[in-house]
Simulated scan of single mutants.
Amino acid sequence: MSALTFLLLMLGVAALSEGRRFVFENRRGETVWVGALGNAGKGTPKSGGWEMRPGSSVTIYVDDSWAGRFWGRTGCSFDGSGRGRCRTGDCGNRLYCNGAGGQPPATLAEVTLSGWGGQDYYDISLVDGFNIPVTMEPIDRRGGGDHYRCNAASCRADINAQCPPELRSDGGCKSACLAFNTDQYCCRGSFGTPQTCRASSWPRNYPAFFKNLCPDAYSYAYDDRRSTFTCEKTGYRIIFS
Rank of each mutant, 00 (worst) to 15 (best):
C150L: 05
F229M: 10
F240D: 02
E25G: 01
Y148F: 15
R83C: 03
T135V: 08
W66F: 09
L7Y: 05
D216I: 00
G43V: 07
T31W: 07
I238F: 09
S114D: 14
L4E: 07
Q195E: 15
A221M: 06
S175A: 14
G144E: 11
C214W: 06
Q184E: 15
V32Q: 00
N151W: 12
G19N: 03
Q103K: 11
G82A: 11
G38F: 10
W202G: 04
V13T: 13
G118S: 10
Y236S: 04
A3Q: 13
C97K: 07
S57H: 15
L11K: 10
L9M: 15
R226F: 13
E51Y: 00
T193K: 08
P207M: 02
I132D: 01
T234V: 00
N205K: 09
G144L: 10
E166C: 02
F70A: 13
P207R: 03
F6V: 12
P138R: 12
A36T: 04
F70D: 06
G235K: 01
D64T: 14
S65D: 12
G118V: 03
T182P: 15
S169E: 15
D183W: 06
T74C: 12
R83D: 03
P165Q: 07
G115Y: 10
C91G: 11
R28C: 10
I139Q: 00
T196N: 12
D79W: 06
G82N: 04
G43A: 07
G102N: 10
T5P: 00
G12Y: 02
C214Q: 05
R21H: 10
G80L: 12
P104A: 09
N160Y: 14
R87N: 10
M10I: 05
R28K: 14
P207Y: 01
I132P: 01
E232Y: 13
R198Y: 06
K46G: 03
R20E: 11
Y206K: 02
Y222R: 03
G19D: 04
C76W: 07
C173P: 04
E232W: 14
T107S: 09
V13N: 07
F209L: 09
N26M: 01
G48K: 10
D140F: 00
E18N: 10
G101H: 06
D123I: 05
S175N: 13
R87L: 15
A217C: 12
R204F: 05
S201M: 14
C86W: 04
T234R: 00
D146S: 04
L11H: 06
A217P: 08
R28G: 15
S227R: 01
G101T: 04
A3T: 15
T135C: 01
W71P: 09
G189R: 13
A221H: 09
R141N: 09
K211C: 13
G41A: 06
S200Y: 02
V34C: 00
G117E: 13
D183P: 14
G118P: 08
D123F: 08
D170Q: 03
R237N: 09
A176L: 01
G75E: 09
W71G: 07
C76R: 08
S114Q: 15
